[in-house]
Design a protein around this nucleic acid. Structure first.
Length: 360
DNA sequence: AAGAGAAACAACCGCCGGGGT
DNA sequence: AACCCCGGCGGTTGTTTCTCT
């Protein structure tokens, strides 16, 4: 529990610092440095607690502090680091010279959080939001899929409608995938089977074929998010296969930047993303190469189902986070995902099997 | 111009872990 | 082992500034 305040601390001044106090503190520290923050106020002639002095110095008076607006590069760096480190502001601040943890934290809470939300991205998970918009769209998609399915599949006029129905179903599956993946690894629950039975009731259709066809690189992703941003992220997975890797945002283009682009990441950080690049190539080839826009009726299932990776950072981050970045323990930083499958991983196996069953 | 509400930011608070005794 | 001190961290609050009506 917290330490009870010392008796005389009740007399100490609180609140905003005056210029005189700042001057006293700066003068003292410039002359003597600090050996003991506790003893400092008395020695410097300040009626403040040592802690307050330390904070004032480290957050405001320190000569190497950079004031002023955050640059776009700094913003991106903060977001990228946050996706890896979570709310480890002090660790994040070590990558931004001249910026304090407090400043970064405030900037995150007042600017960046909102920015991400406006982009339809959950600032906690750095994934597309799965809020009420998504849930409400589930029912709409179900209705759309079933209405189209009622039409005669042999009718030429219904071909396009059929395609729409299939797209709706794929989107529905995407939404469900998203819901489950965002539910965290410890709360994996199968989706409502009745819902799924309805949504996959179209005859003569192989679901894997549909995914292969409908999520082909040239297909236009269905964006059911009702956000007004220009960001085009499909729910569950972006059309970029690397969306399985931590998102690196690029506000200048209002889109995800290529996660393998390490240009905005310090050298020591870039390694972790480079590492990812290789591991994601397997799935990436399916999406990125035009040569792979095939219609296969009996594909190898895992080729077409993006592998679910549980949100356990401890496991997945080991291989990709450099030693200079330690993994966050908090639940807020569970976003780092890899496409590397560990065959020993029970959750992933279960999920892959589960979705294989569903899609068959 | 004035008031209300929102946004921004500095500072505080509680807690924790490491080190010393 | 137990206690205390200290520095540090992250979350929250309070005040100031800005914007809108």
């Amino acid at each position: 529990m917290g330490r009870s305040p010392r008796g005389d601390e009740n007399e100490l001044k609180k609140g905003p610092w005056t210029p005189e106090e700042d001057q006293k503190l700066t003068d003292y520290l410039n002359k003597n440095g600090h050996r003991s923050w506790r003893a400092l106020p008395k020695l410097a002639g300040l009626n403040r607690c040592g802690k307050s002095c330390r904070l004032r110095w480290s957050n405001y008076l320190r000569p190497d502090i950079k004031r002023g607006k955050f640059s776009e590069e700094e913003e991106q760096l903060i977001i990228n680091l946050h996706s890896v480190l979570g709310n480890k502001w002090s660790q994040i601040s070590t990558h931004l010279p001249g910026r304090t943890d407090n400043e970064i934290k405030n900037y995150w809470n007042t600017h960046l959080k909102k920015k991400l939300l406006q982009m339809g991205i959950d600032p906690l998970t750095h994934k597309p939001r799965t809020d009420l918009n998504l849930l409400s769209n589930l029912s709409n998609l179900l209705v759309a899929a079933n209405i189209f399915n009622l039409m005669n599949p042999c009718d030429n006029a219904s071909v396009q409608a059929d395609a729409h129905a299939q797209l709706a179903k794929i989107q529905l599956l995407n939404n469900l995938l998203q819901l489950i993946s965002n539910g965290g690894s410890s709360s994996i629950q199968p989706p409502n089977m009745e819902l799924l039975n309805h949504s996959t009731s179209a005859p003569n259709r192989d679901a894997n074929y549909l995914i292969n066809q409908d999520l082909a690189p040239n297909s236009q992703p269905l964006n059911v998010n009702s956000t007004t941003t220009t960001t085009t992220t499909t729910l569950g997975y972006s059309s970029n296969p690397s969306s399985q890797t931590p998102a690196l945002y690029n506000f200048s283009t209002s889109k995800y930047s290529n996660p393998t682009d390490t240009s905005t990441v310090p050298v020591e950080d870039a390694d972790c993303y480079r590492h990812e690049q290789g591991s994601s190539s397997r799935m990436g080839s399916n999406y990125l190469s035009d040569d792979n826009i095939n219609i296969q009726t009996e594909p190898d299932i895992p080729e077409y189902i993006p592998a679910f990776v549980s949100a356990s950072p401890e496991r997945n981050m080991k291989n990709i986070i450099p030693e200079t970045i330690t993994t966050a323990n908090s639940s807020t930083s569970t976003t780092f995902e890899t496409t590397t499958l560990n065959p020993q991983d029970d959750e992933e196996t279960i999920l892959n099997d589960y979705w294989t069953d569903i899609l068959n």
